[in-house]
Design a protein around this nucleic acid. Structure first.
Lengths: 250, 250
DNA sequence: CGTAAAGTTGATATTATTCAACGGAAGTGG
DNA sequence: CCACTTCCGTTGAATAATATCAACTTTACG
């Protein structure tokens, strides 16, 4: 049972030492508030491919992603699938007041969550304005990101979509280390071709072809199948079709 | 100056009599809180086509849409445009903490806004938990709607996109009258073919063709160019490609 | 009544999808 | 250790969907 083994490696992490401390729901909390959170949190780990929350089903917790990657997906009756959100470390799962998700939440890699049972969390939310404020801020950021993505889905061609996805992942990766990407950059690509296709509204074949094309053109290099090296980040950004840097302001 | 004339017809509306009272940012406010809002609010009206907020520019107010329709749009450097949000009566414009919008906000029809200068509003937000709670709830709803739209943009074909748009507008229209659409339904289509195209990630020609097709197939009827009659709402919903009713839960 | 804006329809071009074959890496069981 | 299978990814050829270009119609409005 690798889940519980991994969970235990995280179980003793104090909130003060938490890797996502400065970006997660608890980012604005004071020492005493962290103390309370620390006492009610628990870790859970999910294996790659495992479903964390089923669309429409009740779930009794909310959580922050500590490590790993998960997707929020929606499926049409005939099986067409759209990834509507990537959950990376520090992202939040669940919404106060609603006990069921509209979307499936699925672990892509091994995912560790910092969970809170719903009732204690809702209570904490009432008593701790810092959490509500941060949740509002994160939700507004996610809304901006979703709208950014609507432009990508609605108006960009396949090549621009791929470049946009890579730029977004590079940004998120850099943000965790409190930097911004520039010059030569390299990062882990945490998604399969199929998951990328489902995020970009393409087929996996088109994704594969466009990645090959960007590689042929020297915009990116692949180290193995999953690590991407970008010799010149500005050149990648130029491929997105956006002006400036794609609107990432954080 | 038709703006100011229209504005004055609204200027004396007490919050208690406001048509969007039960859905807007103030939905949860008590009588005394409404009294304060009432004293600091002011109305502003914009003509069709007028820009309410420019992307990237500072703006000094937040507002609720009282009547009319506005769009949130994003534009690529070569002019491709994507509508990333429809602002219908009761929707909120602006976000606390950020003084500039990432998106253009444009009046589609004549639009009347109930405005608050930023500073008094932010202060009110601090002091009145009901407003912050409602804002969080509305933002979470908008996030769900944006994600719903990502599925439409990424995975639906032109015919399904048109049906989805019509279903959404019918839902929003019904919600204002506190009902749900069913059986025979009719509503105003507040968008030009071009605006619909920009919302759905299509060209205006494709929108026109698909509307004609749905008309030929008896799914919809047009009364004039802008009023849509749907003889059987369930039949329209069946055209969206979703199961059930397209995920609208409100 | 005349003009501009919005909408429709047709012919053709382009892009991404679909269908299909194949290659390599990782894991499994004999 | 090797055959076998599965998963993931790549590439090619044919096809389908939507975009593009263009002409024309209808509606709204001064």
């Amino acid at each position: 049972m690798p889940q519980s083994r991994t969970a235990s490696t995280h179980a003793h992490v104090k909130c003060g030492d938490c890797p996502i401390r400065h970006r997660a729901i608890c980012a604005r909390c004071e020492a005493d508030e962290l103390e309370v959170l620390n006492s009610i949190k628990y870790y859970r780990t999910f294996a790659p491919g495992e479903t964390i929350v089923w669309a429409g089903e009740q779930f009794s917790f909310v959580a922050s992603v500590v490590s790993g990657v998960a997707t929020l997906t929606q499926t049409l009756e005939d099986g067409r699938r759209q990834v509507v959100g990537l959950l990376l470390p520090s992202d939040f799962i669940g919404r106060p007041g609603r006990h069921r998700s509209q979307f499936d939440v699925t672990a892509v890699s091994e995912v560790t969550l910092c969970c809170f049972r719903r009732d204690p969390f809702d209570e904490m939310l009432q008593r701790t304005p810092h959490i509500g404020e941060r949740l509002l801020e994160m939700t507004l950021d996610e809304l901006d990101a979703a709208r950014e993505w609507m432009l990508i889905l609605g108006r960009k061609n396949a090549r621009e979509k791929i470049a946009s996805l890579l730029v977004m992942i590079a940004h998120r990766d850099a943000a965790l280390h409190m930097t911004r990407p520039s010059g030569e950059v390299s990062f882990e690509l945490p998604l399969t071709r199929e998951a990328m296709a489902d995020y970009l509204g393409l087929t996996l074949e088109t994704v594969s072809r466009q990645i090959s094309a960007q590689r042929r053109d020297g915009v990116i290099e692949l180290e193995g199948k999953r690590r991407v090296r970008v010799p010149d980040f500005a050149a990648l950004v130029a491929e997105t079709g956006d002006d400036s840097d794609g609107g990432w302001i954080d």
